[in-house]
Design a binder for these strands. Structure first.
Lengths: 213, 213
DNA sequence: GCAATGATATGATCACGATCATAGCTGGCA
DNA sequence: TGCCAGCTATGATCGTGATCATATCATTGC
């Protein structure tokens, strides 16, 4: 486990806006080297991690030596469930050089117990995550690149259009596609007039043609 | 919207065990015909649905006339997020003849506000769902049937084995595969000695061979 | 200015899941 | 007893995403 770099003012992040000031006060910014282990299965959760940059994963190594990834966090909280449980059930590892905000678990739980507004905000965060994840699961169950793109724009965007906040390459990861497949599918959809692209903005045509895959 | 069939004692379900008795008291068992609409986008959430049997979906129909499914609930709550929001953002539809337990939203919110134990249990349910959904998303991002099977057993099972509570066919839906692909992959894994099947119990071999896909 | 790096593409090939078809088996029911 | 519906299972074919390769462009650093 790496030593915390600084004791105050971790990089502010919109996803952390709902934390009470007292809790942000004791947040620590940590930088992790690629491959660094944050915790092991069986450990008692001592911090709740919020990924600012890089990639932290929740992984279980089976007796057979297989690796099963339970979560890849590229932005957002690593393991919300650790707030509720006394022990981790899997390992936390930095897959690349990463930067995270670590919230002491004791303080987090205390704030949750004492602060009704924070509790409500946390509950809202949790239900929002569920909604997002459900949509993502439905999306990943679609088996053509074009359908996933349309589903993404419709469920994550606003009024049939979306402003991409990431590279096409990392969008491909979210869609469960290789970047090549995504580039090709985008080009095909654009040629077919089903979407239009304008920089980072992708807009769905309101009158779809016969879906030419 | 169909009229509630009976005013008390909806079929008890383990997934509802954490509800306070007072709330269960006002639960209504409802049966829905295939295609029946529970609510429309823009409606004010009046009930929280828990699917007992059948399939309820959360769906958004785009201006272009496409259907985007945000959630398919075949067991469990339909739209937890409706507890937090004043309006639905998509439609709720029964995809087949279904049976659900409807909890009046007002009573649910009141119970959440008044009952700290229930609040804690609800929070625990929410974080558990997040954990499950994150694992499912990772699983669906794997692109071979064999990998998804192994991931499922490892993440949903107990000690490298799982007792299937459903038919292989509906398991295939959970894995984002056709049932044919799942039957074949299971047969291949079994032939290769990577899993053993014993009725509804599927066990992972502890020493995996070179994954012969 | 130039090398190095990473994102943006696109081409060719191949593996594997989807699809359609077929068949055995089972349980429920009249 | 016979029929039907649904699950289990496997075969053949096809489409498409993965993979490997290559090229261009933009950005960063020296």
């Amino acid at each position: 486990m790496s030593a915390p770099e600084n004791r105050r003012a971790p990089a502010p992040h919109p996803g952390l806006g709902f934390l009470p000031p007292a809790l942000l006060e004791c947040a620590q910014a940590v930088t992790l080297a690629a491959g660094e282990v944050l915790f092991r299965a069986g450990d008692r959760p001592e911090r709740l991690y919020f990924v600012l940059d890089g990639e932290l994963i929740l992984v279980r190594v089976t007796r057979g030596g297989r690796e099963v990834v339970l979560q890849r966090a590229r932005s957002g909280f690593l393991a919300e469930a650790s707030v509720e449980s006394r022990r981790y059930h899997c390992d936390g590892v930095a897959r690349r050089t990463s930067c995270a905000c670590a919230l002491p678990m004791g303080a987090f739980r205390k704030a949750l117990a004492a602060d009704a507004a924070f509790r409500a905000a946390w509950q809202k965060h949790l239900t929002g995550e569920i909604r997002r994840l459900r949509a993502q699961s439905e999306r990943l169950a679609l088996n053509s690149a074009a359908e996933r793109i349309v589903h993404f724009i419709e469920s994550e965007g606003e009024g049939g259009a979306i402003e991409l906040r990431q590279s096409v390459k990392s969008w491909a990861l979210d869609l469960g596609l290789t970047h090549e497949a995504l580039y090709r599918a985008l080009a095909r959809l654009e040629r077919g007039g089903e979407i239009t692209r304008n920089g980072a903005r992708v807009t769905l045509a309101s009158r779809p043609r016969a879906t030419s895959r």
